[in-house]
Amino acid sequence: MNDDRCQEMHLLIQADLDGELDPAEAARVAEHLEHCAACASLQSEMLALSARLREELPYYAAPHTLHAAVRARIASEAQPEAQRGARRSWVDHLRRPRLAEFGYFGGGFALAACLAWLLVIPRAGDFPGAVVADHIRALQPGHIMDVASSDQHTVKPWFGGRLDFTPPVKDLKSQGFALAGARLDYLAGRPVAALVYQRRQHLIDLFIWPDQGSIGLRPADGHRRGYNFIHWSQGGMVFWAVSDLNAQELGEFVRLWQAG
């Protein structure tokens, strides 16, 4: 064997195993390998390495929360400027601040990341507070609904492709709680469905996501900052109703919803 020739062969051997050679070049490589044990063993080492890399290394697919966040951001970017400012706020509290609003990759980046994370993941002790805060954020102008429709057959399919689950959608208009629309929101570290109902001048947010039995959900009802909330589980889903409506009427809403 000849070291200089082998040296020349190396990148061809590699290109061969990467499937980049045309048949004539591949034949040239094969011929050399037949007569050169050193290059042949190099080739088998590289093949084995390649197989190990493919089989053993983790493939970091984007988490579904990231898919949802990116879609939400893109939907928000695609809106007219005037709506966008308002719409942005809830998406911002997901992730955006860490890159864009803290001087983009600046020195305070890691700290900013931590702070933003704390905003997203509510402290275990006050999950109701986090839900109410989310409702209040949503009440900012232009921000409560991604899709405004009183038609459940419009609202339900709207969630398709935006969430990895299908939330139940009901209209309770005849009972005095009209479906007004819906939006994609973010709670408990995951994208959730938010249905918006109207009772006189009051809005009710109904947050829905799959019940994974992991979050401490006590108490079942209560109030924070002047807003009432009730939560329950039903049909494999977790529900949180939040509103400035009085507790009695909110309770009626929930009973109707559970029965309907």
Binding site: H67, A78, V147, A148, S149
Partner: peptide, 19 residues
């Protein structure tokens, strides 16, 4: 009332890039 938020041209972007 029925207003679905309009999207400028994100469909093709979503179809091409998001996969």
């Amino acid at each position: 009332m029925r207003r679905v938020v309009t999207r400028a041209d994100p469909l093709s972007f979503e179809q091409l890039v998001l996969p």
